[in-house]
Design a protein around this nucleic acid. Structure first.
Lengths: 225, 225
DNA sequence: GGATTGCAGATTGTCAACAATCTACATTCG
DNA sequence: CGAATGTAGATTGTTGACAATCTGCAATCC
C-alpha cells in the first residue's frame, strides 16, 4: 500500500487500535492482564497520547476496561457474559439470515455453496488449521452479504469479545462435519427464500456453537479431560 | 454525589464523553457540524488530551467521525442508515421481548402495565411532553429487564445514533394512542409467556415506529406539510 | 509475629508546547 | 477574468514534562 495514501488516511491512534487489538486477541496480553502504557508505547515507538486514544476505542468495544489511576486491563469474559453475547449474536446472525433469504443473489448463494464445499474438504481431511480460517471467512461473508454495515459491525464486535472467553477456544472441538452440516442447512434455507426459516436456521447455528463451547467450558471446570 | 466517590471512580475523559454526547444529542453541535477541540476544551476548562480520548469513544459509538488532520465531525444519518439501524434495533428489541416472555416476573409485568396506564393518561390528555419521557422510560425498562447488559448497551447505542437522523424527530407525530396500543400488545404478549409471539410483537413495534418515522421523513422531503 | 507506617520507584492522567496540515484570502500570472 | 501561487492564522496530531496515585518493600510498633 502506498505511503501517501496511508499518511493521508490513517492516524497513529487508528493503527494502534489494530495493533493492540491483535496483541489482545492473539493472547499476547492475556484476559485480566494489565496494559502497561509506557511499555507498549515504547515498543511501538510512539508517545502515550495516541496509545491512550486507541485504548479508549478498545474499551468501547469491550476488550479492555480502564480503572482510574490503575490503568487499562484486558477484560475477562465469564460464562454468564458469554451467554449474553451469544444471545445477541444469535439474534443478529438470524437477522443476517433473514435478510439473505430475502435479498441474496443467485451468485451469492453459489458462492456460499462453494465455501461449503471447501469446508467439507477440510473437514474430511480433518485439517483443522485449514477449516478454521474458512469457517471465519464463511461467517464474515454472510454478515457482509446481508448488506447492513451496522449489523456487520455489531456482529464483529461480539465475535471479538467472545475471544476473551477463551482465546482460540472458539475453535469447537466438537466435530467439523457437524458444524458444516449446520452451515449447509443455513445455506439451503437461504436458497429456499423463506426469511423466517432462515432466521431460525442461522440462530440455531449460533446456539449450537454456544452449546458446544459452553459444554467444553463446563467439562474443563470439572477436570474431566 | 460525594466528591471522594467521583474522584475515585471518574476521569476527565469519562465525564467529557457524557458532556459532549449531550451536546451532540441535544442538537448543540448539529449533524455534519465540526467539533472544534480548542473551543470545546476551553469551554470545559480542560486540555485537549482527555477531550480527544472522549471523542474516540464517541467515534466508536458512531456519533462522530474523525477525519485525519481535519478533525472530528458529528455524523449525519441518512434514511438508508436509519433503515439499517432500525433493522438491527428490531432484532434486538425482539430478543428483549422473547427473553421477557420467558423470564419476566409477575411484578415486572405489573410494572409494565403501570407504565402503560401512565402513558395512556398522557395520550388522552394529548400531553406530548409528558408522554415522551414515559415512552423512553418504558423502552429503557424493557431492555434492562431483559437482564442482558450487552443487549441493553447495543440497543442504547443504536437509539443514540438514531438521534442523528433527525434530532427529536424520533418523536413520532403519528398518534400517541396508536403507539401505546402497540405497547399494550407487547406487554400482553409478554404476559402470554409465548416467546415467539412476543419477539414478533416487539419487532413489529420497532418496525411500525420506523415506518412512521421514515414516512414523516419522506413527507417533509416532498414539502407536503 | 502480625499490623501499621513510611518511602521509593513505577505508572497514570493531564497539560502545554511544537510541528504539520488545512483553510481562507490576497496576489500574481496568462 | 479565471487559474495558479503564496501566506497567515487556525487547528490538529503528537510529544514530553510534571503532578498525582498506586504498588511493593522495608522499617517500626504493639
Amino acid at each position: 500500500m502506498d505511503d501517501l495514501y496511508i499518511l493521508r488516511t490513517r492516524s497513529l491512534s487508528g493503527v494502534l487500535e489494530d495493533e493492540v487489538e491483535k496483541a489482545i486477541l492473539g493472547g499476547e496480553i492475556a484476559p485480566g492482564g494489565r496494559v502497561n502504557e509506557n511499555a507498549l508505547a515504547g515498543r511501538y515507538g510512539v508517545s502515550r497520547g495516541p496509545l491512550r486514544e486507541a485504548l479508549r476505542t478498545l474499551q468501547a468495544a469491550g476488550l479492555v476496561v480502564s480503572i482510574p489511576n490503575r490503568g487499562y486491563f484486558v477484560r475477562r469474559v465469564d460464562p454468564d457474559e458469554a451467554t449474553q453475547i451469544y444471545d445477541v449474536r444469535a439474534a443478529l446472525f438470524g437477522l443476517a439470515g433473514q435478510t439473505l433469504a430475502r435479498c441474496a443473489s443467485d451468485e451469492q448463494i453459489a458462492q456460499l455453496r462453494g465455501r461449503l464445499d471447501e469446508m467439507d474438504a477440510a473437514a474430511k481431511a480433518r485439517d483443522f488449521d485449514a477449516y478454521y480460517p474458512l469457517n471465519l471467512a464463511f461467517h464474515s461473508f454472510i454478515v457482509e452479504a446481508a448488506g447492513n454495515p451496522i449489523l456487520a459491525a455489531h456482529y464483529r464486535d461480539l465475535v471479538k469479545r467472545l475471544n476473551l472467553f477463551r482465546a482460540r477456544s472458539l475453535v469447537q472441538g466438537g466435530g467439523l462435519a457437524v458444524s458444516n452440516a449446520e452451515h449447509r442447512a443455513m445455506v439451503e434455507a437461504v436458497a429456499s427464500r423463506d426469511p423466517d426459516a432462515t432466521r431460525e436456521a442461522f440462530a440455531a447455528h449460533v446456539n449450537c456453537a454456544r452449546t458446544r463451547l459452553l459444554s467444553a467450558d463446563t467439562s474443563t471446570e470439572k477436570g474431566s479431560f
